[in-house]
Design a protein around this nucleic acid. Structure first.
Lengths: 329, 329
DNA sequence: TTGTACGCGTTATCAG
DNA sequence: CTGATAACGCGTACAA
């Protein structure tokens, strides 16, 4: 058969200028030969690699995995492939992730920034409406934002503890450089103010979120000689559920009971947190809405050529289970 | 300055033919201009896109996330980007994932196949030693294999239940089409034979692994009129921990206690399974070794140009906690 | 409606 | 050691 390259290309891309008959011929032959266009060449030529890049800080966090999976599965239907980098809360790694991702000409970048410094985000400046920033808003940055109200999250967590009579609390949070960590802390302070109280800075422990680090944070406070904690506390609020389980672990190691000896409140709501001993009181991150919002933006911009810049604002809420003791009765 | 494209390219790629002096000049200028090579063009020309593709069946499974993260973080150091697809246990989706991934000219594909039918794997045939297959071996397929002994896993799970006096058990497993599901079941049967017993086929429930499905599997057995199960059982073994928590959920719903009324044994060992109520007895999948083996292959082939085909064989083991009741005393 | 020729940004080859 | 040129596989303007 004598059909030229370009006709084939047009047929495969549903160009309306090609005769239906020839298109069918081409499509059939393509299927026969298991032909798949080289996406690198296509991307190089058309400036669209059909790729969506995600840059997150802890891929093992189930909330992030949930979101990533939803996006990946949905966009795969339209021929998009999703790649994901783990910036590990480190701006330098984030920078190299961005560079490495941008060099692959992605159609969209979804990023959960490591720092309030917009320097890294500026590397994405020319992608404008094809970037989604997760977490908090950056003034002067013209991207799509999915803001998540961590301030409210912190507030709700502290409120719950304070309402149940816990005045001496600990906070275990991501290092303050992490943008949303500051909001979380801020919300906690606001709840304290509501109660006419103040949270001393030494009661806030900064560490990367993991079971191990949560456990260490508590253990380092233990005075082995005196057999008690160096700082008095009845409640702990944590930046995510993994950290909360670190507290569980430390408590178990010290033969302390939750919630009778230590009350704990998490963040994120791990799918398994309903089954823990005791079931964990935590702040629910609206993962369905986050994923839904991202997919909505992706569809509008990528599939319908929308030029708008989106700004979603999502709120977490308290899920009350059994890890907070009520001191009032 | 008058340095040609080709010299620049050589300088950037550490070609030994370029003078050190010129290289420094180029590197400096590159940094100045924030120059980053277009990976699509580079990939098109050099047949290496510096990309590693993973095709898994449930990205939300923490074991998979752990492995993916380790690979992603490690290989990022060498300029490789990792992309991941979720085949959702569906051979058709897997096929389109493979096609979509191959079109991006990845340097490596890591795949956890959906089916024992090697048809999809054949699409990767010309990548030979640049494919890693996770799970079980396919005869006649010439790829790297990381075999995980699910047969042993099933055996250990059943053994534990049988040793503690549970003769009437249920199995909740991934549909048998999923390659390693058959091995799991086979191991269970072998343990039964060791005890001179037999597991009736109707005691095996096939469903995709999730908390919800695990719960449904149990609930559908409940006779609401008689207030008892349609099939008598004291123990349940599941294909992964999420399913086990589905059993927890159903038990809680029916006001049944674990392990007094129902003993449960999971698979995978979710990081949070140590904290559940009760702590879950489960089969530990050697995730560190799996990740380590993959990285070893990746390094040898990609970084050191090794041509060997690797075949790892990894074994799970029992982690005994409190979700299995001992009926013997 | 179809075919020809060029360009996307690199790297590989080969001549200088 | 450096520079010119071709080629990677595709999409598209323009010619036929």
């Amino acid at each position: 058969m004598g059909i030229s390259f370009s006709t084939v290309s047009k047929a495969l891309n549903n160009s309306p200028v090609v005769k239906e008959e020839t298109r069918q011929l081409v499509l059939q032959k393509a299927k026969e030969l298991d032909y798949a266009p080289n996406m690198l060449a296509r991307g190089l030529r058309s400036k669209s690699s059909k790729t969506i890049a995600a840059i997150f800080n802890d891929i093992e966090n189930p909330v992030l995995t949930y979101i990533y999976r939803k996006i990946s599965i949905d966009m795969a239907k339209y021929g998009y492939t999703t790649l994901i980098c783990d910036a590990q809360f480190d701006p330098d790694i984030e920078r190299s992730n961005i560079l490495s991702v941008v060099a692959r000409m992605p159609d969209f970048v979804i990023i959960e920034p490591t720092t309030s410094d917009p320097a890294n985000l500026k590397l994405l400046a020319n992608m404008a409406n094809r970037v989604i920033v997760l977490g908090k808003r950056y003034p002067g940055i013209n991207h799509n934002f999915i803001q998540i109200d961590y301030e409210l999250g912190g507030y709700l967590a502290a409120k719950e503890l304070l309402a149940k009579g816990h005045r001496d609390c600990l906070v275990i949070a991501e290092p303050i450089a992490f943008p949303i960590s500051g909001q979380f802390i801020h919300g906690i302070h606001r709840a304290y103010q509501d109660h006419g109280l103040e949270l001393e800075p030494e009661r806030i422990i900064y560490t990367h979120a993991s079971i191990e680090n949560g456990s260490k944070a508590i253990m380092q406070l233990w005075d082995y000689n005196e057999k008690r904690f160096k700082i008095n506390f009845t409640g702990v609020m944590t930046f995510n559920d993994a950290v909360a389980y670190g507290v569980y672990k430390a408590a178990s190691h010290l033969a302390l009971r939750i919630p009778q000896d230590i009350s704990v409140i998490g963040f994120d709501d791990n799918p398994l947190s309903a089954f823990s001993l005791p079931p964990l009181t935590t702040i629910y991150l609206p993962r369905e809405k986050i994923a839904g919002s991202i997919i909505e933006i992706l569809h509008n911009v990528l599939l319908h050529n929308d030029q708008e810049i989106y700004n979603f604002f999502l709120e977490p809420y308290l899920v009350s289970r059994d890890s907070v003791n009520d001191l009032n009765n």
